[in-house]
Computed example of a mutant assay.
Amino acid sequence: MTDAISRLPVFSFLWPGMLWLLALALVLSAGYVWLDRRRRHATVHYPTLKSVGVAIRGGATLRRHVPPMLLLLALAALTFAIARPQAVMMLPSHIETVVVVIDLSGSMRAQDIQPSRIRAAQQAAKVLLDTLPAGVSAGVVAMAGTAAVAQAPSRSKDAAATAIDRLKPQGGTALGNGLLIALTTLLPQTAGDAERLMNGDTTPLQKPDASHSGEAVTPGSYPSGAIVLFSDGESNTGPAATQAAQLAAAHGVRVYTVGVGTTDGVVLSVDGWSARVRLDEKVLKEVANATGAEYFPLADAAQLKRVYRALNMRLTFGKREQVEITAFFAALGALLATCAGLLSLWWFGRVM
């Protein structure tokens, strides 16, 4: 419930001082009630007035009050319009490219999700790409002990799906490298910083400017692309995932992370060795939070639809802006006033 309430639009007014005009609607409401009582009083004390017709004929019915009430609501809506209301709303984003990173490490063979972590990740990634708008390009990065582009960004969703199907589990996990390769695929100008991190240089990053004004880029502010990582979070080589996330955040790129597996984990036996492999949610959450994105757990097959629907919603409607909605209240007021006039003309033969 709290999460649902937090998504409701937050209203404010550019000219809040004009809201005092609502007092006029209250005065007119009070005047209408007084006139109605006076009319009923006259009917009771002067029965001969019943012959007047329209003024009395509808007195016992509710519909006599409908046109005036609609007119008062129209006045209230127009008053809101005069005050110039605005709301913080989720707007369609202008995303053009999504790069999917799929973890192919040995731990992704685990079967705490059926049929396995890697198959669940592949299925979720393909469904996600299939639901993206037609104009969005999709790329695929395969990540194990090293990382490489399996499919360059293309508007062909079939090509991306085919590349995902070809992926097989391998050895090693370089989570940071996977994110850096995805970032350079999305923004080629980051290649220099990415290479520096992959070579072990941990010098603090210098954030680029969003404009010549010198304002720093806000994490998650890059509107044209995003990265989606499917992984169990374990990494044993290459730069830290959080370092790669810092570089992505410095360029405003969002990295949505999907945790594949369970926190309890399972014992995995491969090539004569056995180990318990668990989902490391901590690092995946840190990556998502640092880049202004979100983390989604994929702990069982039943969560698959919820994950890709939530991801698709964030990618398609991930932009929150304050929008003036004066036109909506102005149109509502005009519609209510028109309905009031038409109903009065139809029922009583006069506009009001």
Rank of each mutant, 00 (worst) to 15 (best):
I113M: 02
V100T: 13
T97I: 11
M90F: 13
V99C: 06
D112A: 02
S116E: 10
A110L: 06
A120E: 00
A77T: 02
I118P: 02
R119P: 02
R84W: 13
R109T: 13
A87I: 11
I113L: 14
V101C: 03
H94W: 10
T97P: 06
A83Y: 10
I113D: 00
L73H: 04
V88I: 14
G106S: 14
S105T: 11
D103M: 08
Q111Y: 05
L78A: 11
M90R: 14
L73P: 00
I95Q: 10
Q86P: 06
P115L: 05
I82D: 03
A74T: 06
A76L: 09
E96G: 11
E96H: 12
P92C: 01
S116F: 02
E96T: 10
V98K: 00
L78I: 06
D103T: 07
I113C: 02
F80W: 12
T79E: 07
E96R: 15
V98T: 08
M108H: 01
S105C: 12
I102F: 08
D103A: 11
I82W: 14
P115S: 03
T79I: 12
L91H: 05
G106D: 09
A74I: 04
P115K: 05
L91M: 14
L104T: 08
L91E: 13
V88G: 10
R109Q: 14
T97H: 07
A77N: 05
P85N: 05
A87G: 12
P92E: 12
Q111V: 09
S93R: 11
Q114Y: 10
D112Y: 01
I102E: 07
V99K: 08
R119L: 15
A83V: 06
